[in-house]
Amino acid sequence: MAHPGSLTEAQVLKKLQQYCAYSERCHSDVVNKLYELGVWKKEHDTIIAALIEENYLNEERFAKAFAGGHFRQKKWGRNKIIKALQQKQVSPYCIKTGMKEIDEIAYTAVLRELFEQKWNSLKGEKNRFIKMRKTSDFLIQKGFEPELFSSLFKETDP
C-alpha cells in the first residue's frame, strides 16, 4: 500500500470510517486525509468507493449539512456557502440540493437581523453613505446578495 511500516488498507478504511462518522465529509476532505495518512494515489479510488458503498461518504448529504449548518450557526449567506462548497469541489448538483436546506423566510429574517445589527453598531457614523457602504460591505462579506438588502436602506431613518 504505502511505504513499509505504514497502515494496511483495512486500517486506513477503519480510520476513514471513523473520520466520516464523526462529521459529514466531502470527497476532497477524504482525499486530503488519505494523503495525510500517506496512502498512495492509486489506492484512493478503492477506499473512497468502499466509503460510498457503506454510506460513510455521501456528498449530497454533506452539502445539505454544510449549507444548513453554516447558515444557521455562522449566519452565512448563499454566495459564501456556494463559494465554500465549490472550493471543496462539491458537484453543482449537490450544491443546488444543499442550498434547498435554507428556508427562504429564515434567510430573509437573518439578513434583516444582520443588517440591523451592523447598521445600529455604526451609530457614531454621521455620514449616511459611509454607513451604507460599511453595512453593504459587511453583508456582502457574509455572502448575502445586494439585491436582497438594498431595499432595507430605504426603510432606515435618513
Rank of each mutant, 00 (worst) to 15 (best):
C26R: 01
C26L: 13
H27E: 05
H27R: 10
S28C: 03
S28M: 04
S28E: 13
D29V: 01
D29Y: 10
D29R: 08
V30E: 01
V30M: 01
V30S: 00
V31F: 00
N32C: 01
N32G: 05
N32W: 01
N32H: 03
N32E: 09
N32A: 02
K33W: 03
L34M: 05
L34C: 04
Y35V: 06
Y35C: 06
L37F: 13
L37P: 12
G38Y: 14
G38S: 14
V39C: 09
V39Y: 03
V39I: 15
W40A: 07
W40D: 11
K41E: 03
K41Q: 07
K41G: 05
H44D: 03
D45L: 07
D45M: 09
T46E: 10
T46N: 15
I47G: 04
I47F: 14
I47V: 15
I47Q: 07
I47W: 11
I48S: 07
I48M: 12
A49R: 15
A49L: 13
A49D: 15
A50P: 14
A50Q: 14
L51S: 05
I52W: 06
I52D: 03
E53F: 08
E53C: 11
E54I: 04
E54T: 10
E54F: 05
E54D: 13
N55F: 09
N55V: 07
Y56F: 14
Y56E: 06
Y56W: 09
L57N: 02
N58C: 13
E59A: 05
E59G: 04
E60M: 08
F62R: 09
A63H: 08
A63R: 10
K64V: 15
K64M: 14
A65F: 12
A65R: 08
F66Q: 09
A67E: 10
A67Q: 11
G68E: 11
G69F: 11
H70W: 13
F71E: 07
F71A: 07
F71P: 10
F71C: 09
F71D: 04
R72T: 09
R72N: 14
Q73M: 13
K74Q: 14
K75D: 08
K75N: 14
W76E: 09
W76M: 04
G77N: 05
G77L: 09
G77Q: 05
G77C: 00
N79F: 03
N79R: 02
N79C: 07
K80W: 00
K80Y: 00
I81R: 00
I82D: 06
I82T: 06
K83H: 02
K83A: 00
A84W: 02
A84P: 04
L85N: 04
L85G: 03
Q86D: 14
Q86E: 15
K88R: 10
K88N: 05
Q89D: 12
Q89G: 03
Q89Y: 06
Q89N: 05
